[in-house]
């Protein structure tokens, strides 16, 4: 199930999954971003339109892990939801301890791409079985 991409390691993917699932968290009724297929969307896009963003992702995900370790001693993916959200609020503000190329820009980029996977058509790899469209009430009839 783990999307494969030569430029990102398993550790990068774990961090990316944890990040995507805070951008679009699971709730009692509807799946998280990753559960809905955002990982597949990104894996596909990293070989297509986002191939020049793979390197910024690699650096950003490593910086996010460094930030999490500096604050908690653990990588981002091993933290609880509240701790992860706390770090992301700081990242969004650029209020970071570790060495980032541009923390708010990385986070803004990830927010957009994760939502592209979630809300665009299922042929793009995410939004499996149009789950996000059902959630908001966009029903394709014709």
């Amino acid at each position: 199930m783990q999307p494969e991409n030569i430029a990102l390691t398993e550790a990068h993917w774990r961090t990316l999954q944890a990040l995507a699932d805070r951008i679009i968290p699971q709730d009692p009724d509807w799946p998280s971003g990753w559960q809905a297929g955002v990982g597949d969307y990104l894996a596909h896009q990293f070989e297509r339109d986002l191939r020049h963003q793979v390197e910024p992702y690699r650096r950003g995900l490593e910086a996010l892990d460094d930030e999490a370790r500096a604050r908690t001693g653990k990588p981002f993916a091993e933290l609880g939801n509240a701790a992860q959200d706390g770090i992301l609020v700081a990242v969004e503000r650029g209020d970071v301890f570790t060495n980032w190329p541009d923390a708010p820009a990385f986070f803004a980029m990830a927010i957009q791409h994760v939502n592209e996977g979630f809300y665009s058509d299922p042929n793009n790899g995410g939004n499996k079985a149009s789950v996000a469209w059902h959630m908001i009430g966009y029903i394709v009839k014709g």
Binding site: I23, I24, P25, D27, A108, I111, Y119, I136, G137, Y138
Partner: peptide, 16 residues
């Protein structure tokens, strides 16, 4: 908010 539960909830409750 552009991310998190609040964003998802807004989308869910307001598209229609």
């Amino acid at each position: 908010p552009r991310w998190g539960a609040a964003n998802k909830q807004f989308m869910r409750e307001n598209y229609r």
